[in-house]
Design a protein around this nucleic acid. Sequence first.
DNA 1: CTGTTAGCGCGTTCAC
DNA 2: GTGAACGCGCTAACAG
Lengths: 340, 340
Amino acid sequence: MGHKRATLADVARRAGLSKTAASMVLNGREGTRLSAEAHQRVFAAAEELGYRPNVAARSLRTRKTATIAFVSDIVATTRFAGDLIRGALDAAREHDHVLLIAETQGDVAFEQYAIDAMLDRQVDGVIYAAMATRRLTVPPALLAGPVVLLNATSPEGLPCVLPDDERAGRTAAGALLDKGHRDRIAIIGRNRLKETDPEVSLAAGARLRGIHDALDEAGTSVHREVSCPDWLPEHGYAAMRTLLRRPDRPTAVVCMNDRLAFGAYQALADAGLSVPQDVSVVSFDDDPIAAWLRPGLSTVALPHETMGRRAVELLLDGRAAGPTVVPMSLRRRRSIASPA
Amino acid sequence: MGHKRATLADVARRAGLSKTAASMVLNGREGTRLSAEAHQRVFAAAEELGYRPNVAARSLRTRKTATIAFVSDIVATTRFAGDLIRGALDAAREHDHVLLIAETQGDVAFEQYAIDAMLDRQVDGVIYAAMATRRLTVPPALLAGPVVLLNATSPEGLPCVLPDDERAGRTAAGALLDKGHRDRIAIIGRNRLKETDPEVSLAAGARLRGIHDALDEAGTSVHREVSCPDWLPEHGYAAMRTLLRRPDRPTAVVCMNDRLAFGAYQALADAGLSVPQDVSVVSFDDDPIAAWLRPGLSTVALPHETMGRRAVELLLDGRAAGPTVVPMSLRRRRSIASPA
DNA sequence: CTGTTAGCGCGTTCAC
DNA sequence: GTGAACGCGCTAACAG
């Protein structure tokens, strides 16, 4: 690949100057040390030869590769991984950097491999990403250089980027309160494990706190809460069915994520009820299905692209410490109405 | 990053040998040239120092970086991008390689930037991926080194990896025929642009041919075909409604992708019809929603993970030319039954 | 047989 | 403005 590329020596020769001079000119060093004429000649030569520096050679001296490692636990599983990566990619490009990616699949051996591979390539820093917002422990090898955690925190208090799930909870509940819902708001998706183990999820507890706080402040409280073994459509379906079995049906439901909401929609349809006339629904994530549902699902969006971007900015900036919280905003669609 | 790493010189010194000896031992060169004892000493020293070669330094001489560029048009938009990448990542790891990723966003300037950045880093080859199966023209700069197209072909006849959409079409139609559907099979998702412009889609035409061929061979033909401006749920919804307006309602429908099928499900539900008792549905892609729908949607899966894997295998193997076709298989769920 | 010396590859940087 | 060394690992040529 890239066989007969012009080297700095070629440029220097063509410009009739030394490699040193060429290097200085091309790197914009030393304002007046070289004549304007020398500048012209070097630029012209570089242009004519299509010169591009060899990053490997350069990094040997400078110890900078303009390359960032993006290591995540799982890239393929969730639709959101792509947004995280895209944001990171965009920011990297803006700063003339490039991304080396690897995934650990939650496997210690793979993780070790990935980290070694990145370090062998002298990356300038690493972004360590989790696909579910959670706390994790960072492999010690990473602590030697710049790291930022993406969608995760760690006990070490490293710089990290997190979505603001607590405010998202307030936002979701607020959207319902604003429309006049009050004493018949239910929650679908309580889950003890997700709520109590920060290594599993940080989102569940935070969203819940936000919801409860908002209702508290409005002088009311949750009507009913249904637990789910996981946050999948089938669990949302079952949860909504149990809510509908009771006579005092809720006027509104907040689902802990969009997949649950999808299941809830199905249960409502099966029961002959319609959204939002009979029951309003609000949720979290802004999964693509939120827009595909009929009526469109109002949901508080995960700002994954922004988060990915912020992570590389923090990494390149270098002076960040502690968490950076990215706001989540409500995508208003048609699933919320005033109670009948 | 990686500040005080041990160098080859450190290893050699500790082993009491020259760098040459250490290098040869560590690279497994020259069977008997060095004593067994020397081998021991070098290995021991390397082990004790945690030595790992500096890839940049090595590549300066060998011109190999054990790094593959993965350049795609769009990573974030579709859920499938992740699978393509994951497959590539897995195969890369198995061959001790690493992936440098970039996306062009369909923008010529971004593409130029990405390619230059990859080439500057002396990647061993590039995988050029498209998120929708289509024909594209490869930037000339890439033709200088090993390239494989992923989910795309090019006029140049470069090595490429494609899903077998034509057989997928036969498979989908076959699943319906097997259950006894015959003269009332409809298609949702005809689209002249996708079917005729290979730079837009190669999948549409191929799937359609497969479906038609299978019906031909069964001595029948398509009952009705509905065009859609795009392959989104809303278009599937509209298409199904137009089918249902006619008195001779189809007994089965094949949707050109799962998102259309999702819309079709909604229209059927709105009409009070049920899948598969009233209408059977089969589709393509195996989007996650296929499993979430009720009943589960039977669909012919895009083998994205396998394709990603195959692409790096082809690239590293080096001797491939022309297309490699990856089979698509039917995910049997509950959306197909015998006609009433 | 067992090993070493002396560059090389490419760009940066120090001392003159 | 320049020569020469340097960063790190590989390798042709050479020597005990």
